[in-house]
Nucleic acid binder design. Structure first.
Lengths: 346, 346
DNA sequence: TTGAAAGCGGTACCAG
DNA sequence: CTGGTACCGCTTTCAA
C-alpha cells in the first residue's frame, strides 16, 4: 500500500479529465451529469483510492447539526445527569458545528412527548433523541418527525414498534438478568423473598428488567421468591406507603432490586431498617454512589450517561449524513459497580 | 449568549484593526509582534468570544499525526485484541490524518522496550504508547523520547517514575479489590484458600492487583487464606507444573484469581477439575468469554481495548497540540462481566 | 451537461 | 514588525 499523499478531488478531476465541479456533482450524486461521465469519475475514484475529507467538506458546506433531547421532567437523578452531560458536551461540540439542546417534558405522559415531537421545526432540527413510553400516539408522532426528515433516536427505553432510526441504551433484559445473578449469589440465606421496585410498570425498560430478573431467579435461584413489582411514581409514595407495607406483608425479605433510578426514599427507608438486606439498584448517581460506599447498596447496574450522549450525537450525525457508523462503539455497556470499582468522583 | 455566527479570524482581524497574518501570529504565538498589538488581538479574541476551528486549522496546516504502539509479543489474547483495535481504528483515523502503527516487542524485556523507544524517528513520530516494565533503563529511554518532542503514554501498566505524559489503563489496585469483593461474596464455603495466578511478578500492574486483592480479602473476608502468587511466564509451565503442584500442596482451594490475561491453560486445567471453584479472571477475550458462558469462569474484570486505543489517540493528539482534553472521558473503567451482561460477540 | 472561480476558517510565505 | 495573498480539500453559485 503506497502510503503516499492521499488523492484529493483535484487529483480525480485531473485523472478523469473533468472539472472539479463535475467531480463534486458525482460525489454528492447531484443531477446534471451524463452517465458516461459519472462512470469515468467513479473509475478514477476507485483507481486512485480516493477518500473524502469530511472535515474539509463540512467546512466548505458550513454544515451545522442541530439536535434536541427530550427528557422527562420528573425527579430522577439519572435524567439530571443526562441533562448535565448534554450541557457539558454542547460546549465542546459547538466547535464542531454541532448544537445540542435539551428539553424536559412531562413525565409518564405520552401526550407531552407527542406535542414536543410535533413542535419540532424540521428546518432547524436535524435529529431528536426521545425518552418516552411505547404508545401508538408516540409511535405516530415519531413517524411524522421522520417524514419531515428528522432523525429519531429512542433513548434508554426502546420504541421498536416505531420507525425510530436508532435505539441508544442498554439491553434491559440482560440488565435484569445481571441483577438477578448478583442477587442470587450475594444473598447468604437459603431462602426468602425478594422485592422489586419500579417507577412505572408501563415503561418497556421496566418490563424487560423484570422479565430478565425473573428468568434468572427462577432458573438458577429457585430457592428465592420474587414478589410482585411495587410501583411508585413518586418518591413520597414509596417511602411512606409502599415500602412499609411490603415489609409488613412479607417478613422474609432478603433482597431488594430497585429498577428505577430515584433512590432517595429507598435509602432513607434502608437507613432506618435494622436487618441488612442485599440491595441492587440502577444508575450511578451522587446518591447511589454514597449508598454504595456506605454499604447500604451492594451493587449498581448502570449505563454511562456521557457515552450515551456521545453515541446519540455520533449516530444522529452519521444518519443525517447517511454515512456509516461503528456499531460496536455505539453499543452501551451494562456496567456493574461495586464499592471497589467505583470511578473517582467527577 | 448570542448564539449568532461564531467569530472567525477575519472578524478579530477587523475588530482589532490588524491583518489576518498578525492574528495568526498571535494565535500561534509566533514571534514578531509588538506586545501592544498582541494585547489588542487578545482583547478582541476575548471580546468576540473567538474559538479556533481546529478542523480548518489542521486542513490549512496539513497537519498529520503519527503514533506508534509498542506491545509485548508474548502469547496474550488481550494484547492481540489491542493490536487488532489499533489496526481497525487506523483505517478510520487515516481520514482524520492520524496514522497508527503498532509494533510487537520482546515481552518481559526491558531492553527491547528501550531499543524500540530509541529507534523512534522524532521527525516521523508524534507520540508513542508503551507497555513496559518499570525499570530505570525504560525510565531513561522515555526521558530521551520526550526530550525529542515525542509524547509518551504508559499503557495498561503505569510508569509513574518516568516522565510519561499520560497513563491509559485501569487502576489496578481497585481492580484487585473488585476481584476480591466478588470472590469473597461468591464463595459459599466458610473457609478455604484462594490461589492467585500471574504472568510476571515483576510488572507493576500485577503488584497492584495483588495488593488490592489482599487488602479487601483480609479486611472483609478474613476467613479465607490467599496463597502466594503463582507466576507462570508461559502457558505450558502453568498447565503442566504450577497448577497441579498448587492443588497437590493445598487441598482446600476454593477460588482462583487469575490476574494475567492468557487463560488457555487455566481453562484446560479447570475442565479436568471435578470440584467447582469460584474463578475470576481478567480481560474479555474469545477464550474468556467462552469460559464465562460455560460457567468455568464466574466473573471477568476487564477494560475496553477499543476505548483504550481511542483514549491514547485523543490524549496524544491533544498533548501534541498542547490543547486541553476531557479527563473524564479518558478514564478507563474497570468493567465487570458476568455471563448475563456479556456484550454480544463482535 | 459542464467548467471557472469564489469562498469556508485557517496557515504561511514573501514583501515591505 | 506588519500586511498581502496563495493555498488546504471541498462545495457552490453563475455562466457558458
Amino acid at each position: 500500500m503506497s502510503a503516499s499523499a492521499k488523492p484529493t478531488v483535484n487529483d480525480i478531476a485531473r485523472h478523469a479529465g473533468v472539472s472539479l465541479a463535475t467531480v463534486d456533482r458525482v460525489l454528492n450524486d447531484r443531477p446534471g451529469v451524463r452517465s458516461v461521465t459519472i462512470e469515468r469519475v467513479y473509475k478514477s475514484i476507485s483507481e486512485l483510492g480516493y477518500i473524502r475529507d469530511t472535515a474539509a467538506a463540512n467546512l466548505a458546506r458550513r454544515r451545522v447539526y442541530r439536535f434536541k433531547f427530550l427528557i422527562p421532567d420528573n425527579d430522577n437523578e439519572f435524567f439530571d445527569s443526562l441533562q448535565s452531560q448534554i450541557e457539558a458536551q454542547a460546549a465542546s461540540l459547538s466547535v464542531e458545528r454541532t448544537y445540542l439542546e435539551s428539553k424536559r417534558i412531562a413525565a409518564f405522559d405520552s401526550h407531552s412527548v407527542v406535542v414536543a415531537l410535533d413542535e419540532l421545526d424540521p428546518d432547524a432540527t436535524d435529529g431528536v433523541a426521545v425518552i418516552g413510553p411505547e404508545t401508538p400516539a408516540v409511535r405516530d408522532a415519531i413517524g411524522r418527525a421522520r417524514d419531515l426528515g428528522i432523525v429519531v433516536v429512542a433513548l434508554l427505553s426502546d420504541l421498536p414498534s416505531s420507525q425510530r432510526d436508532h435505539f441508544v441504551g442498554i439491553d434491559n433484559t440482560s440488565a435484569g438478568q445481571t441483577a438477578a445473578q448478583l442477587m442470587g449469589r450475594f444473598i447468604k440465606a437459603d431462602s426468602g423473598s425478594i422485592l422489586m421496585l419500579t417507577n412505572s410498570r408501563l415503561s418497556r425498560d421496566h418490563l424487560e428488567r423484570r422479565h430478565g430478573f425473573d428468568t434468572v431467579m427462577s432458573e438458577r435461584f429457585a430457592q428465592f421468591t420474587v414478589l410482585p413489582s411495587i410501583e411508585a411514581r413518586d418518591e413520597t409514595e414509596l417511602l411512606e406507603r409502599s415500602l412499609p407495607n411490603a415489609f409488613a406483608a412479607w417478613s422474609d425479605i432478603k433482597g431488594i432490586y430497585a429498577s428505577m433510578a430515584s433512590n432517595q426514599s429507598l435509602i432513607e427507608f434502608l437507613d432506618k431498617q435494622s436487618s441488612k438486606l442485599v440491595v441492587i439498584a440502577h444508575e450511578l448517581t451522587p446518591l447511589s454512589r454514597l449508598a454504595l460506599q456506605r454499604g447500604i447498596f451492594d451493587a449498581l447496574i448502570s449505563q454511562d450517561s456521557g457515552h450515551i450522549v456521545r453515541s446519540c450525537v455520533r449516530l444522529m450525525r452519521a444518519t443525517s449524513d447517511s454515512v456509516p457508523y461503528n456499531a460496536l462503539q455505539e453499543r452501551i455497556r451494562i456496567e456493574i459497580f461495586l464499592k471497589e470499582n467505583l470511578p473517582p468522583e467527577p
